[in-house]
Design a protein around this nucleic acid. Structure first.
Length: 475
RNA sequence: CGCGGGAUAGAGCAGUUGGCAGCUCGCCAGGCCCAUAACCUGGAGGUCGUUGGUUCGAAUCCAACUCCCGCAACCA
């Protein structure tokens, strides 16, 4: 039995779940389910990233205590499990005591490797924005949003991580393992970036300015910067450092992340692991973004799509289907409600749903015997392999091409015109084929696949219920 | 010469090693009537962003160019 550890990134809880995170966790879920079905032992981790100034301020603006705010948001993210039918085994919060202790131990290990040092750090601060500004954010050395105000210079002492030390080791890692980051152009991207030279980065803030963070061991005046804190979750979730056995059983694992997370995951985190003397991740898959009508989703454009609203309207499997079948596996994908509806109507209502009704009705009318779970070895092997290579679009295409063939065969063979015995003889192979194809569908649309398999594996006591109502009946 | 992605039928996209341009939706015409007014068959519709090169042959390889979109370090 093979062991398989898979984790999403931890979404930052400054806002409600985003459709982009739904994409990430649904893909992870398909991979986890697929591994379980092939008999692997799976540990699937997700959770929430809860520290940092933005969270602190957000809670303040809502008049909540920061802990209360975090608790509410963590609940909101946990709701995705039921809504999207997710099968994660662990939900970690970076405010968990166990995680905080692990991060502090991780910090000590990096200190022991000589990779953490203190230095003065001067930063430009815009009073108008109440934000630190980097040079790249400035125009003519002024904040573009508040050009009338002079920037303040703040001189602060922070801890830095010696990222520059790991340039060669990271480059070696990338060349030794060509599938370390997928898709390969993302590996190329991070490789180029590392080759262009790395600078050390600040990993702490003054506690007086940032009260919501994990204390730096041995320095009460400083708290850790959120990235350093959050990345460690991938191993603290496994019980590191106390549960040594469990940790080495699962780590290294596979990570999935959005393309904005390429550097933190494939670069910073890997350098941190090297510093702490731990093995690098096994593989990192980078998702593209979902645009809304071709535009980047952002709060200022108020075009952010909520996965929860979509699920409430169309159902969890419908949302899973759209994300898995219509969003490109390797590049950005686009969402519009029209696109969603078109796909839903064609593939789920008129496609799979209607085919199920056709076959289900005929099975009931002709009083067929229950069908044992059929097997299409060729199809399931192919689909399994496609999933492991993160080709979700193509995997679903393979299954749907069987469904289309079955629709055509039914129309061609017209069992409803035959004598009962002949009709049965005609239907049985078709239903077997349908059940076998649907068996391969289980990791993608677990609820729907289960309904179909259950229907055909029992005595037929009536007409089947529609799986996906037509859109005109939803609104 | 900052990094990377994209440009293929009205729309959305596939095209793995170069070998007669495909899929889904939409549209038109037939068929079927088991089924969620669903399903099936056929058809119309493309100088594969531009220009040049390699080749018997290029959407595919090479070069230059045009347009669009992300990112450009402490930003989930």
């Amino acid at each position: 039995m093979t062991k398989f550890y898979l984790t999403t990134t931890l979404p930052y809880i400054n806002s409600e779940p985003h459709i982009g995170f739904a994409l990430e966790i649904v893909r992870a879920d398909v991979l986890a389910r697929s591994h379980r079905l092939s008999g692997d032992e799976v540990f699937f981790n997700t959770g929430t990233d809860e520290h940092g100034l933005k969270i602190w301020r957000k809670a303040e603006s809502l008049g909540l205590s920061v802990q209360e705010y975090c608790d509410r948001m963590a609940e909101s993210f946990k709701e995705l499990k039921g809504l999207l039918d997710l099968s994660f085994d662990n939900f970690i919060r970076t405010t968990d005591a166990k995680h905080q202790a692990a991060v502090q131990e991780f910090w000590r290990r990096c200190v022991a490797s000589g990779d953490i040092y203190k230095k003065h750090y001067s930063v430009k601060y815009c009073v108008g924005c109440e934000m630190e500004k980097t040079d790249s954010e400035l125009e003519n050395d002024r904040c573009p949003l508040h050009p009338g105000q002079d920037l303040e210079l703040i001189d602060e002492e922070n801890y830095f991580f010696r990222l520059s030390k790991y340039q060669d080791k990271l480059l070696a890692l990338y060349s030794e393992r060509p599938d370390f980051v997928l898709p390969e152009n993302r590996l190329k991207e991070v490789k180029n970036f590392v080759a262009s030279g790395l600078h050390d980065f600040s990993i702490s803030r003054l506690a007086s300015k940032l009260p919501w963070g994990i204390p730096v061991p041995g320095d009460e005046e400083q708290v850790m910067y959120v990235w350093f804190d959050a990345l460690v979750n991938y191993i603290s979730a496994l019980g590191w450092p106390e549960q040594e056995v469990n940790f080495s059983k699962w780590w290294p694992g596979v990570q999935i992340a959005g393309k904005d997370n390429l550097r933190p995951q494939a670069l910073m985190w890997q350098a941190m692991l090297l510093s702490a003397g731990l093995p690098n991740s096994q593989q990192i898959f980078i998702n593209g973004f979902i645009t809304a009508g071709g535009q980047k989703m952002s709060k200022s454009l108020s075009n952010v799509v909520s996965p929860k609203e979509l699920v409430e309207k169309y159902g969890g499997d419908a949302v899973r289907y759209f994300l898995l079948a219509e969003i490109n596996d390797r590049e950005d994908g686009d969402y519009t409600e029209d696109r969603f509806i078109d796909s839903y109507q064609a593939n789920l209502a008129n496609g799979l749903g209607n085919l199920f009704s056709r076959l289900g009705n005929l099975a009931w009318k002709y009083g067929l015997e229950p069908v044992n779970k059929g097997d299409n070895g060729e199809l399931s092997t192919k689909v399994e392999q496609l999933v492991k290579d993160w080709h979700f679009n193509q995997a679903l295409n393979e299954i749907w091409s069987i469904y289309r063939q079955l629709d055509a065969k039914l129309t061609e063979q017209q069992p409803w015109k035959l004598e009962p015995d002949q009709a049965k003889a005609c239907l049985i192979p078709l239903i077997n084929e349908f059940v076998a194809a649907t068996s391969a569908l289980r990791p993608f649309l677990p609820t729907t696949a289960e309904k179909i398999l259950n229907f055909f594996s029992q005595n037929f006591v009536g007409k089947p219920e529609p799986l996906f109502p037509r859109v005109d009946n939803i609104n």
